[in-house]
Design a protein around this nucleic acid. Structure first.
Lengths: 199, 199
DNA sequence: GTCTATACAGGGATAGAC
DNA sequence: GTCTATCCCTGTATAGAC
């Protein structure tokens, strides 16, 4: 009872972000109104502006935080000396991380065009760093002669597209379990670059 | 001189569709206004409604026509008895068709959530038919023992995601030529399902 | 800190003149 | 077939009461 009724700043802030993320993912940034977000949070539209300067920042912050979280989690992984092992680990990590955050992923890939140029540049730089991490693995594997790759950049983008595609269909409690899915994708990724599956 | 000035129905109709496609792809369906479309076409907003009942039909028609064109083109291909050859052909076809129609593809993948339920169902059915065509190839290859696939449905979706990803980066006149790109993708697709590249 | 009320721009769509 | 004018709704954002 220490807090006055009507004072919820520590709760409302995160709730706005959560609701906005769900609505943006479901209907698209441009199609969602501040009134809609406010209604789901349980406040008036005007109250949102206590927590965000505007709608655009809501989007940009959510995308930046998602990508920063992705990069931080990636950096926490060990760095296996064997390229095949490194690729398998990356594939499993990527699929797992994306499966667990479908809304954030969807937004990060679909709403780029709704970012103002300054925000776009920041987000693109983060995405680029992530792609570079995979490309480094592929490059090393090619240099060591264990991957067969006509073009590492193309392969990087092809693999990321393939792995990210999991979010288009995977549903918790579906026909295939998460561990199973991770394994299959890692397997396909390895084979796609001409390395045998890790055994 | 047979036609009165101001009468352009045979030109305006297609132009509206073309302009709408470009704008929807660039900014997103929800972010584009009828006034914007009209301005680019060179007519007043009200005139659009002579060619389309509403904005939603503009989107639904464009998506349905894209997918119908895709299916028709696919049906025109020969049906190689060798599954590896069939998959290579599918991969090359898919990448090529998508590379040549980046706007239509982008819309077909990004604007599904802006379709009303009835239109959504139609479009989903078409997409499903396309996926089934690839799955049939994979299934046959697995039955014949030339593909190594833990799950044909997952592999279908993974391959389509990988191949469609080409639209995220390919630009005419870039570092890699179209023929080269087709070859590399087909190669990766074959390897991903455990078949050697076609020689 | 949150509310109501509201400003003001722009949305989709229609009516009716030409 | 195209125009202007307009209806009515919804958009973002702010002001000021509580």
């Amino acid at each position: 009872m220490a807090r006055k009724t009507g004072s919820h700043s520590e709760i409302t802030g995160p709730r706005i972000r959560a609701v906005a993320e769900r609505l943006f993912a479901r209907h698209g940034y441009a199609a969602v109104s501040m009134r809609q977000i406010a209604a789901e949070v349980g406040v008036q539209a005007g109250a949102l502006y206590l927590y965000t300067p505007d709608k655009q920042s809501l989007l940009a912050d959510m995308m930046r935080e998602h990508l920063e979280g992705l990069l931080a989690a990636l950096a926490d992984l060990p760095a296996p000396p064997d390229p095949a092992e490194a690729l398998a680990q990356f594939a499993r990590f990527h699929v797992d991380y994306h499966i667990l955050r479908p809304d954030a992923v969807f937004i990060a890939y679909m709403e780029l065009r709704n970012l103002e140029p300054a925000h776009f540049a920041q987000v693109e730089a983060l995405r680029r760093r992530y792609e570079d991490a995979l490309e480094a693995i592929l490059q090393r594997g090619r240099d060591m002669g264990v991957f067969s790759l006509p073009d590492t950049k193309l392969a990087t983008l092809a693999l990321i597209a393939m792995l990210t595609g999991v979010t288009n269909w995977y549903r918790e409690g579906g026909r295939l379990g998460r561990a199973e899915v991770l394994g299959i994708y890692a397997d396909m990724a390895l084979k796609a670059v001409g390395a045998g599956p890790k055994r």
